[in-house]
Simulated assay, not measured.
Amino acid sequence: MTVEVHPATADRFDDVASLLAPKTPGASACWCLSPRLASAELHALGSAGRPARMRELCGEDPPPGLLAYLDGAPVGWCAVGPRAGMGRLTRSRTIQQVDNLPVWSVICFVVKAGYRRRGIAARLLEEAVGFAAGYGAPAIEGYPIDAEGTRVNTTLAFVGTTSLFEKAGFERVAETRATSAGRIRWIMRRDLREAPIAAD
Rank of each mutant, 00 (worst) to 15 (best):
R123S: 08
R116H: 14
L124R: 07
V152A: 04
V106Q: 05
A137F: 00
L70G: 07
V103W: 01
E166H: 14
A147V: 09
R190F: 05
A121G: 10
G85Q: 05
R189N: 04
N153D: 15
I120A: 04
G182V: 13
Y135S: 11
V110N: 03
G114N: 14
E148D: 11
G76Q: 06
E194T: 14
E141S: 03
A157F: 05
Y69C: 02
I95Q: 03
L89W: 06
R190I: 14
F131G: 00
I140C: 03
L125I: 14
G136W: 00
A73V: 15
Y135A: 15
R55C: 04
A113K: 13
P102W: 02
S105F: 09
T161R: 11
T179Q: 13
P62R: 00
W77N: 13
V75M: 09
K112R: 15
I120L: 07
G136D: 12
R93E: 05
A121C: 01
R83S: 08
Y69A: 00
T176I: 01
V129W: 00
L192W: 01
F131D: 03
T154K: 11
S105V: 11
T94N: 06
K167I: 07
E166W: 10
R83K: 10
E127S: 06
E141V: 03
L192K: 01
G65N: 02
G149M: 14
A84K: 15
